[in-house]
Design a protein around this nucleic acid. Structure first.
Lengths: 342, 342
DNA sequence: TTGTAAGCGTTATCAT
DNA sequence: ATGATAACGCTTACAA
């Protein structure tokens, strides 16, 4: 690595003190416009950009954001990373990643240690890790900044970005009823996830309000994996009579159901329809393509980044009005494809 | 964020100078064992870990590694990230991500700027970005450290991690011939990618050596996207006679072919077999599941991290023998599934 | 509007 | 074997 220009080099070239250069860098107000422009030009021409570690050392910041996740699905993760970067880069923050193993029981300590050693200024936490209250108790105890992404407000607004999964499943319920699909089975996610509850309740309650109730043996619990979908799908599809529709708590399981149906020689959607949740890359490409629910993941991640940075940088004034961070309710969208009748 | 203990706090507590604490942290030899243990205990008990930015400021390092990619597929990206972290964390480096838009024509400048502003100590570059020579000329000119992942040695061994795609397709050719599948069509990747050439040549030449030649109209160029697979698959499947097998340069395209076959009501593998490359998450889940080629992506990424760190930290001695970085030839593995006859 | 100087938490040089 | 002390590149009181 070659030597990069420093603030001193710029100051020397401009014939001013480095304090003035610092002012220009940070957009302070009290600088002579002529001086400012001159310095800006030199900075530009020299390709200078302030050293984040030096800057951070002085300001007690790292200008690093972290992102913590386990098995959120690679497509989801990728979208979150891009959504966060869309915002953070402009604000001067880089993004560092921390995949963790939620099943290992020391993962709270592992995540705390990550924040400690990496010295990130704050972290964005994806589901299902975002549901682990113990983790955020620890973060709070340490005074760490964080934003959680989830399907329900588990925390203060400043610490949360929420998608309205409940509303999405209300819409799905209405849609299914509207196309006469009323014998419905459900493969839920793990019972202790709030995403599971939100979706299940939104679905079941709306169906109930429309006069439809689901037989208890048609609600079974999966674990959001493909294998689980395969297994639960098999269980459901070997019952008699068959449900008209199976809703799986996510696309991975829904694809498992489609595979189970295929193995049992049950045509989708002719004999049974399948609906998922996520709209991941499989959804559009599986045969038949999957009817599912899509959340605006990248946009949600961008908001998470904005909220996190707002925490880190106490508003200098009312510069960033709260409205910018207000809850644009992130309403997921129902995507109807070929795994339900047209 | 609460105040963390610093080296001064530790020094004070231990009743020694901070230079001595520094020695303990860095495992210097000239320290009294008793002193060392005492200090180590205090560090442990205080939960102290040295501040990377202060350390980096003094040592002219950031202890940050970067990873640059475009559309390598989210599953591939995720595996690389985890593979890199497996190594880098132990060596004290965090990982920062930079998705970039290769189609935008200023992306070389964009990537250079990323390295500049983030002050990463080095970057790992994934295909297809890793094939862009202009980028690495720029990196070299700036004196940046990098490692490229690709299907052929485009650079010095220290800067490359290579998978033997050519060998994998030789194996595939032999397999197909062994099961009597000899009327073969190919959907290649973009002609200017070396991965395309390696796979195509390995395949075609081996087939030729086995007495089989491919009709020119059965070799068409795709662009590695699902949509392209759909389109090229349709083109191939509306010819008469039909090929027995279609090899697509990656899984996304192979899944496109399967969808095209489905649309044309052509049974896979009964009337036509399909083979892909990557073994991404779709491959095992599409119906029928896809015969494909799997590279040890995480292991390759780990090696890339080791090579990169070796560049950054000039070997103190022969501590890390070159053998550790030697080319374990990364031979991909043929995965036979249901899109070819059993 | 601009500059001086101290300090952020480390490592590195040179003594002792 | 250990310790002063000066960097590293920046921000920030405090002056001028």
């Amino acid at each position: 690595m070659h030597k990069r220009p420093t603030i001193n080099d710029i100051a020397k070239q401009a014939g001013v003190s480095k304090r003035t250069v610092s002012r220009v860098i940070n957009g302070a107000v009290n600088v002579n416009p002529a001086t400012r422009e001159k310095i800006a030009a030199i900075i530009q021409q020299a390709g200078f950009s302030p050293d984040k570690k030096a800057r951070g050392l002085a300001a007690n910041r790292s200008y690093l954001l972290g992102i913590i996740y386990d098995n959120s699905g690679t497509y989801y993760i990728d979208q979150v990373q891009r959504g966060v970067l869309d915002i953070s880069i402009d604000k001067g923050y880089e993004l560092i990643v921390h995949p963790c193993a939620k099943q290992s029981d020391n993962y709270v300590a592992n995540c705390v240690q990550f924040v400690q050693r990496s010295h990130v200024d704050g972290v964005i936490v994806l589901p299902p890790v975002s549901e682990c209250q113990a983790l955020f108790d620890a973060f709070t105890a340490h005074g760490y900044h964080y934003v959680r992404m989830a399907s329900i407000a588990l925390d203060t607004p400043a610490n949360m970005v929420v998608s309205d999964d409940r509303g999405a499943l209300q819409a799905l319920a209405r849609y299914l009823v509207s196309v006469q699909l009323t014998q419905i089975a459900i493969i839920t996610g793990p019972a202790n996830y709030s995403s599971t509850t939100e979706r299940l309740e939104g679905f079941v309650q709306t169906l109930h309000s429309l006069g439809i109730d689901i037989a208890p043996q048609w609600i079974i619990e999966g674990d959001n994996t493909y294998e689980s979908g395969l297994e639960c799908g098999h269980a459901l599809l070997t019952q008699n009579p068959l449900p008209q529709v199976i809703f799986a708590n996510n696309d991975d399981m829904a694809v498992g159901v489609i595979n189970a149906a295929y193995a049992l020689n049950i045509a989708v959607p002719d004999r049974v329809s399948v609906v998922g949740f996520d709209d991941n890359q499989l959804a559009a490409r599986i045969v038949p393509s999957l009817t599912t629910v899509r959340r605006p993941v990248a946009a949600m991640a961008s908001l998470a980044a904005r909220k996190l940075i707002a925490q880190i940088e106490p508003a200098p004034d009312s510069e960033m009005p709260d409205s910018a961070l207000s809850e644009t309710p992130y309403t997921p969208q129902l995507i109807v494809r070929n795994s339900t009748p047209r």
